[in-house]
Design a protein around this nucleic acid. Structure first.
Lengths: 160, 160
DNA sequence: CCTGAAATATCTAAAAG
DNA sequence: CTTTTAGATATTTCAGG
């Protein structure tokens, strides 16, 4: 899946992760490449799945989603089909930003983005209380989103 | 901070959140706006901070970061200056993708993206063991990143 | 794999309704 | 808000090393 990234790729990836709108001409200056080479590399990186998508990060508060809640879910049974059905339900819920299947005390960690507590309570009914496979869940209310994002660390060099 | 978003804005925001590279001409078709109106709205939304940034989402595994770990941190003292110093340390660490300050049993929830367990252990030394204000921390290893992203739900309409 | 230049496409701003 | 125009930027492709 990762076809040998060299240091030029690292420069490009770090740059577009920070700001996807920088012109390929400027990327070329930073990476010491022509715009044509930049264009080709970006295409290959996207085709290879290294670049998953170009996206705009929106301000949740500006859209009325002022409440972040982290939830730990414990399940009754770890039967594969039941887990998969739960994962589908979580994934389909737009208010669940992130879902991790974890090893340890609990089984899932979810990150909710909701308008208010009322909406969260309503979602817990549907997703947890009405789901026979949810044994327990623990709610952690975020007072501050200290650091957010899906940024991947990009070291100076590694494989090149 | 949120200067009345109408349904046109919602269409635009949902579209560029899903794919930031769609042409403004196509955005215009989807939102029933001229490209000039789309351009103006996108500029205003960015200036107002509704659009925080344009970014490329990268595949962590492709960059060698195959291990996601969620950590709950409990502090000794909640003194404001100590908390702030911890937050600065977490924020400055590239391997910490996300940091939430939460109410409840623990005080911080962190999401790490690391190359391997060795790197994680090394980071815990520096960030937790060598920090006098960390009372305890609990490590949850992610077996699967079921759903990721920072997407904000965009309802059909609300304030318009 | 690269560069440089040409051909497309896109964005931005202005003018007028 | 709209449409149209025009010029500046950005992108993609192509020829050739």
């Amino acid at each position: 899946m990762a076809p040998k990234l060299d240091k030029h790729d690292h420069v490009l990836l770090a740059a577009i992760q920070e700001n996807a709108r920088v012109a390929q001409s400027e990327l070329g200056e930073r990476a010491n490449l022509s715009t044509a080479a930049v264009n080709r590399r970006l295409r290959l990186l996207a085709d290879a799945g290294v670049i998953e998508k170009y996206t705009a990060r929106l301000n949740p508060k500006a859209l009325g989603y002022g409440l972040t809640i982290i939830v730990e879910v414990k399940v009754e049974s770890e039967r594969a089909d039941l887990l998969q059905e739960m994962q589908r339900g979580f994934t389909a819920c737009p208010e669940i930003q992130q879902c991790y299947y974890v090893a340890g005390e609990c089984d899932f960690v979810l990150i909710f983005l909701v308008r208010d507590m009322e909406q969260y309570v309503s979602l817990t009914r549907r997703l947890f209380h009405e789901n026979g496979n949810v044994k327990a869940f623990k709610t952690l209310v975020a007072m501050d989103r200290v650091k957010t994002g899906m940024d991947v660390p990009i070291t100076g060099s590694e494989s090149g």
